[in-house]
């Protein structure tokens, strides 16, 4: 494992921890899109089906279980916890996220590394992850005041994606036969979606003002 991959996994882990911290200690999910969290729960459930068929490493298994467990529990908290669910910006979080799923499924049926159930699900999870952040970005844009934890959550997620791109470049040059077009293209699309947010985040950080996205 190279440093970019490890740093990418760690920023991903931290993003989840930041979100759980917000939910557990502040008992608030204000500014967090349930739509995006539901998509992530579906992304990890469909991608990690190979937990049952392939063993890669203890690290890999533990991380998969963490991402599965945390994404499902975040959805549960936002939907059912009697305090947390009251802070959910239901009226602002109106992105019709289920409409993203059908095109991703069709694309996965057409473009996959192998036409088997696990491979189609794997490709589906990659396509869906690429667009899963959209409801969150729309919600951020609608929310006037973005609190620090929410801003940091999205920043960490974006950093995780950018580090994975560096990891692919590194692996391409250091490993034989390491070519994965599906992962790369969907990963790059996903990273580009964060570019706008990054821009405004660093502007607000540089000028030391509260993060606000233009309407």
């Amino acid at each position: 494992m190279n440093i970019f991959r490890l740093a990418g996994d760690m920023t991903h882990l931290f993003s989840v921890l930041v979100l759980l911290l917000k939910i557990h200690t502040i008992k608030s999910c204000a500014g967090i899109s349930l739509k995006t969290q539901e998509l992530y729960a579906i992304v990890f459930t469909t991608r990690y089906l190979d937990l049952f068929t392939t063993y890669i490493s203890l690290y890999n298994t533990i991380m998969k279980l963490i991402f599965l467990g945390s994404s499902i529990s975040i959805v549960w908290y936002m939907r059912h916890h009697k305090v947390v669910r009251r802070s959910y910006d239901k009226d602002q979080d109106t992105f019709r996220h289920y409409l993203l799923m059908l095109p991703c499924l069709l694309l996965a049926l057409l473009i996959n590394e192998k036409f088997t159930f696990l491979e189609v699900m794997w490709a589906f999870s990659l396509y869906l992850e690429a667009v899963a952040i959209l409801p969150q970005l729309v919600l951020l844009q609608r929310t006037r005041n973005i609190d620090n934890l929410t801003g940091q959550y999205v920043l960490l997620l974006g950093a995780y994606r950018a580090l994975y791109v560096l990891n692919w470049i590194y692996r391409y040059f250091t490993e034989e036969n390491y070519v994965h077009w599906i992962t790369w293209v969907s990963g790059i699309v996903q990273t580009l979606l964060y570019a706008d947010f990054f821009y405004y985040y660093f502007q607000s950080w540089k000028n030391n003002v509260k993060l606000q996205l233009p309407a």
């Binding site: 890669i56 991380m63 990891n167 994965h180 992962t183």
Partner: peptide
């Protein structure tokens, strides 16, 4: 022997 695939990533 098949090389490990992208599936070793998360």
């Amino acid at each position: 022997q098949e090389k490990p695939r992208s599936h070793d990533e998360l």
